Simulated assay, not measured.
Amino acid sequence: MTKYRLNRLFNPRSGRALDVAVDHGAFHEHAFLAGIEDMPATVATLIDAGPDAIQLTLGQAPLLQSAPGKDKPGLVLRTDIANVYNSPLESPLHSVHVPDAIEVAVRLDAVAVCVNLLDLPGHPEVREQCIRSILALRTDAERYGMPLMIEPLVMQTNSDKGGYTVDGDTRKIVTLVRQARELGADLIKADPTDDIGDYHLVVQAAAGTPVLVRGGGRVDDRTLLERTQAVLAQGARGIVYGRNVIQHPHPAGITAALMAVVHDDATVDDALALIGGEG
């Protein structure tokens, strides 16, 4: 039954997906709210732009699911809350999941749920919390036929601003992606590697589980589209981008450009033309 919901996530023609993440408000970091201060307007804009899915929290998901019509984007429901992005960091660090998240996801007609698998230097207890959350969610996900997207995030200390940033070390990402696969992920949302040419190793570690590539912080449009093209060529099944869409001056335009690359194998220049140039 799990695979049935994924039929509403992946485009039937390309077999790929674009999921726009708008769950940033759950992480209690003011900087993450840029571009999504007005959530009803943000979600309405994205519905019109038409990505394959929008990733939301249980508090904001009704903004999507209350919209009429059967052709709106699917819902990917964020199921956990963490405080690892704050600057300065809070103490103690934590990652906790919504206890009835899978039942909530079923009631909200989600196509999948998303949960972190965090690897933080010096804080193995946070990864343990994530593993316990994943195992608890996995039990209910199996029962209700709800696809479980695990988000393995290898982090490194941010010496300039405090807190943590993404670590793009291929070996570390591959190791954590492999653990996500061993924990029973139906989908894996993983960061790009520093050497983008290594990304096939991440796909290999997922061992047939679809890999969707995480977007991270804002980059210029050409860089974003070139990176997207590169990871798709190495076997990624799609992308999960947040700030590169919601903080873009033209969210609908960049969505159209990304959809063209993901589903139609458009060239970067052709995709750029859909948004009128580089941002």
Rank of each mutant, 00 (worst) to 15 (best):
T2S: 15
L9M: 08
L9R: 05
F10D: 01
R13I: 14
R13C: 11
R13N: 10
V22T: 11
F27V: 10
H28M: 14
F32S: 03
L33G: 05
P40Y: 15
P40E: 11
A44G: 07
L46P: 01
A53Y: 01
Q55R: 14
L58F: 13
Q60A: 11
A61H: 09
P62E: 09
S66T: 14
P68N: 08
G69K: 14
V76P: 00
T79M: 09
D80C: 13
N83H: 13
V84S: 05
N86M: 15
S91F: 12
P99I: 11
V104F: 08
A105E: 00
R107V: 09
P121E: 06
H123I: 02
E125F: 08
V126P: 00
C130F: 10
A136H: 06
L137V: 10
M149W: 05
M155N: 03
T157R: 14
T157E: 08
N158F: 07
D160W: 11
D160S: 15
G168N: 14
D169F: 09
V177W: 03
V177S: 05
V177T: 05
A180S: 11
E182K: 15
L183N: 01
D186H: 11
D186F: 06
L201N: 11
V203A: 00
A205T: 10
A206I: 02
A207R: 15
A207Q: 13
G208N: 09
G215E: 01
G216E: 07
R218K: 14
I246H: 07
P249N: 06
A252G: 13
T255D: 01
T255Y: 03
T255P: 00
L258Y: 04
A260R: 02
I275T: 14
